[in-house]
Amino acid sequence: MVLPRGVGLALLLAALGCPRAAWPLVWYSAWVSTVYTEPGTNRTVRSSAESGLYGDASPKQSVQGLVGIPRGGAPGRMEGCAPDVEYEVPAPPARSAGAPFPAWIALVARGGCSLQHKIGHAVRRRAAAVVVYNEPRFGNTTLPASHLGTSHTVVIMVAHPKGMEILEPVQRGIPVKMAISVGRQHKQEFISGQSAAFVAIALITMMIISLAWLIFFYIQRFLHTRSQFGNQRDRKETVKAIGQLQLHIVNRKDKGLDVDAENCAICIENFQPKDTVRVLPCKHVFHRHCIDPWLLDHRTCPMCKLDIIKALGYWIFKRASF
């Protein structure tokens, strides 16, 4: 059975502090039983299901009778909204002449006018109860509809498929006997004010945490981007500075450099004639292809840890001043 659509909305409105009196706290389902006989085969067709919902103002009691529909049975006239609407109630052929007409129940479609008007028109035609079936254009759900001023009439609502199931044999002129009985009671407890406050605080806390995380994320992203930009700029400056270091082609006549005894501290190989070397400000000598990548990554002498950029800047300034 489909739960009333209004219940979820009532729960939301209650959480937002709307008055409870505007929404039902209790509703009742209805058992709907039908029986008829197929004229061609004499087969008895029975159906029984807890498929209806009593209206808010409806008496919660049982009722039974033959099913009647607005005269003509056309889709546009099934709503029973015309003030002069007449009902067709197929009656059993065995009814004796002059016998009082048995109780009957009006079957009408939802829409076209207010529920109060539908009920009023049917009651004036002596209907014992009114069954309203939903239309797919309204969402095809059942709900405990409001119908003030008609509290003496049993009113239930059924879904569209159930309405079509009842309507089909009646439109063929077959008497359909319907019995409506009270089903289960359903209760909806609203969220208390304390619970609503707790939910609101939890949502606000989650929003604050999410906002703080976003701020932290974008700050880190900004710092990372700035750091990368700074590193690229420093690397360019380092490349320029390394280009200012002294290059030297090794030969055996170099004073102060014993090519047979001296070696590169990075690759641990002796300097050979015609090797290209760099001389750092600290006077340590290395192969060019060994020391350049090292300086790009570390900016210090591999042997004495001298900051080459600082020393080179002072050194270049001193050379430029002479």
Results as ranks from 00 to 15, higher is better:
Lys177Tyr: 12
Trp31Cys: 04
Phe138Cys: 06
Arg77His: 03
Gly173Cys: 06
Ile309Gly: 05
Arg71Glu: 07
His160Met: 01
Arg252Phe: 08
Glu38Tyr: 06
Gly76Ala: 14
Val170Lys: 04
Ala30Val: 06
Met206Tyr: 02
Ala202Gln: 12
Pro75Gly: 00
Pro92Phe: 12
Ala74Leu: 14
Cys264Pro: 01
Trp315Ile: 04
Leu53Ala: 09
Glu50Cys: 01
Lys240Ala: 13
Phe322Ala: 14
Trp27Ala: 03
Trp294Arg: 08
Ile266Glu: 01
Thr141Ile: 10
Ala49Tyr: 10
Val154Cys: 06
Arg221Cys: 00
Pro59Gln: 05
Gly72Ile: 07
Met1Glu: 09
Tyr218Asn: 10
Ser29Met: 04
Val154His: 05
Ala261Leu: 14
Ala145Leu: 02
Ile308Thr: 01
Asp258Ile: 04
Ser151His: 11
Leu148Arg: 08
Gly72Phe: 09
Gly230Trp: 13
Ala49Trp: 11
Pro83Arg: 09
Arg252Lys: 14
Asp254His: 12
Gly193Glu: 15
Arg124Asp: 13
Ala94Gln: 15
Pro302Gln: 01
Phe101Pro: 12
Cys301Gln: 00
Val176Lys: 02
Ala311Trp: 08
Arg233Gly: 00
Arg46Trp: 10
Ile209Lys: 09
Ala94Trp: 15
Ser47Ile: 07
Gly112Thr: 00
His248Gln: 15
Trp104Lys: 07
His117Pro: 05
Val176His: 00
Leu25Tyr: 02
His186Ile: 07
Leu306Ala: 12
Ser227Trp: 07
Thr44Arg: 14
Arg125Val: 01
Ala122Asp: 07
Ala15Arg: 11
Gly17Pro: 02
Pro169Glu: 12
Asn251Met: 05
Phe216Cys: 13
Ser58Trp: 02
Thr300Val: 13
Ser33Pro: 11
Leu247Ile: 05
Arg20Cys: 08
Ala159Val: 06
Pro39Gln: 00
His287Val: 04
Gln188Trp: 10
Cys304Trp: 12
Tyr218Met: 11
Ala109Val: 00
Pro24Ala: 03
Ala320Asp: 14
Ala311Ser: 15
Pro75Ala: 09
Pro136Met: 10
Gly17Ile: 09
Arg124Trp: 04
Ala57His: 12
Pro59Met: 05
Ala21Gln: 10
Ile209Thr: 10
Ile201Phe: 03
Val155Met: 07
Ala197Met: 11
Ile105Pro: 02
Ile208Gly: 07
Tyr218Gly: 06
Leu11Arg: 11
Lys253Ser: 15
Gly313Ile: 02
Leu16Cys: 12
Val26Thr: 14
Ile180Gly: 00
Ile156Ala: 03
Lys274Arg: 14
Ile249Asp: 06
His186Ser: 05
Trp104Phe: 08
Val108Arg: 04
Ala106Phe: 01
Asp292Gly: 03
Lys253Arg: 12
Ala94Arg: 13
Asn251Asp: 15
Arg233His: 06
Ile191Arg: 09
His147Met: 13
Tyr54Trp: 06
Arg233Met: 08
Phe322Cys: 13
Ala159Arg: 08
Ala103Asn: 04
Leu312His: 09
Ala99Phe: 05
Asn263Ala: 13
Gly149Arg: 01
Ser29Cys: 08
Leu13Asp: 09
His121Thr: 09
Arg319Glu: 15
Ile180Lys: 11
Met78Asn: 08
Asp56Glu: 15
Val199Cys: 06
Phe190Val: 03
Pro293Gly: 02
Val123Ala: 14
Arg288Ser: 11
Gly52Ile: 11
Gly72Met: 07
Gly40Asp: 02
Ile308Ala: 05
Ala261Val: 12
Val130Pro: 03
Leu257Gln: 07
Leu306Asn: 04
